[in-house]
């Protein structure tokens, strides 16, 4: 439930969640950080048919860091993530209003090349979804489709063979995804034969192979056991050295462990609070966020 009214000249919403009712202050999601913003989201609304899934979300994602999106299920955090690389275009009834910019370029303008966009913003899904192909082919799929890799008889005849590049790429991204030692002897086996955790790391490696700037992860560890989850978490922290990682999770401990900043979405598709992870978890401004984090509801 929400309504908008103007108090003291600032835009505030009164929202009730659980037993607490409060005004959402814009200041709660004003997050100051050093350096440039990689992604700037401004006043984003998403509708599925008549249903509003996100309302007026604005947030800046800093470069080379881990940003966690947390919140109860149905709060719109996955919807938000899928807006960033326009995967919501796949859903016929979805309608997006507002602005997202990547390095200052508008993602939601008419002439946008979705291929280029998704090369720059990679994505890892909740369920591991490797292609039913060999491990090697899973890695080289993206570069091949983008014309950066060319192998095969014809390429060899024409002197354009990139087999060595492919070998190097496969090894590099598999090492980066901490999977190389486990699969180096069976690169030509079907990827569906890997364990769930390995499959998920393969999907991360696959995303790295197209050399993105941003990696979106939609609850990447929720389908995995604790040991596989720990490996994925370590990997995410390492990736933040070179990439901008945005990760959705419903696991608050996970968010606290891996992220630099955290955004909290609550019911109704509303961004309530966004800021430094330590600050959000230790001293949130919003009463409802505190209730949520301490487990009073959600």
């Amino acid at each position: 439930m929400s309504e908008t009214d103007t108090v003291d000249g600032t835009d505030q919403r009164v929202t009730t969640t659980g037993e607490t009712s409060e005004r959402v202050r814009e200041a709660w999601s004003d997050y100051e950080f050093a350096g440039d913003a990689k992604l700037v989201v401004d006043d984003l609304d998403v509708y599925y048919g008549d249903e509003r899934a996100l309302q007026g979300v604005s947030l800046d994602v800093p470069d080379e860091s881990v940003t966690a999106l947390i919140g109860p299920s149905g709060c719109g955090k996955s919807t938000f993530l899928r807006c960033l690389n326009r995967m919501n275009d796949r859903i016929d009834s979805a309608r997006v209003e507002g602005s997202v910019t990547l390095d200052g370029e508008e993602v939601y303008s008419d002439g946008v090349n979705l291929v280029e966009l998704r090369k720059r913003i990679g994505m890892v899904f909740q369920e591991p979804n490797p292609f039913p192909k060999s491990i090697r082919d899973n890695i080289s799929y993206g570069p091949r489709k983008h014309g950066d890799l060319d192998t095969g008889l014809l390429a060899r005849l024409l002197g354009r063979d990139d087999t060595d590049d492919e070998e190097a790429l496969v090894e590099r991204v598999l090492r980066r995804a901490a999977l190389w030692d486990e699969v180096k002897d069976r690169l030509d086996d079907n990827a569906l034969g890997l364990s769930g955790g390995q499959q998920q790391r393969l999907c991360i490696a696959r995303a790295l192979a197209v050399d993105p700037d941003v990696i979106l992860m939609d609850e990447p560890a929720s389908a995995l056991d604790p040991i596989a989850t720990a490996k994925i978490e370590d990997l995410i922290e390492e990736l933040a050295e070179d990439y901008t990682v945005v990760v959705v999770t419903h696991n608050m401990q996970q968010a606290a462990r891996i992220s630099d900043q955290t955004a909290v979405f609550l019911t109704g598709g509303e961004l309530v609070e966004y800021g430094d992870t330590d600050q959000i978890f230790e001293n949130p401004e919003s009463q409802r966020v505190e209730d949520y984090i301490t487990g009073k509801f959600g």
């Binding site: 291929v115 899904f125 696959r206």
Partner: peptide
């Protein structure tokens, strides 16, 4: 999910 995976890679 497999189709989404391919699309999200920019194919």
């Amino acid at each position: 999910s497999i189709k989404s995976g391919a699309l999200a890679m920019g194919s």
